[in-house]
């Protein structure tokens, strides 16, 4: 049971160390550039699907192919 006196402080120290590191980095402004990644993920609009494999453009509605249900501007 003595191991308890080692275990709990150790785990709390680990958790605390991680929390301090995280809070510290926020205070230092390390996450200030955390804006662009969340936008960049949306910008793969240049992704194309080769025309050659799409048949009957009129029937499949190629103009809708990337955004079939888009209802409002971003």
């Amino acid at each position: 049971m003595e191991v308890l006196f080692f275990l709990i402080p150790l785990s709390v120290a680990l958790a605390a160390g991680f929390t301090i590191a995280c809070l510290g980095s926020i205070r230092d402004g390390q996450f200030d550039d955390m804006e662009s990644p969340r936008w960049r993920v949306l910008f793969d609009r240049n992704e194309k699907r080769p025309e050659s494999t799409a048949v009957k453009p009129a029937a499949t509605g190629l103009e809708m192919r990337m955004k079939p249900q888009r209802s409002e501007p971003l």
């Binding site: 793969d44 240049n46 992704e47 194309k48 699907r49 080769p50 494999t53 799409a54 048949v55 499949t60």
Partner: peptide
Amino acid sequence: RAGRFSEGEIQ
């Protein structure tokens, strides 16, 4: 059945 499968590609 209504569509046609193709692989995406980017530049």
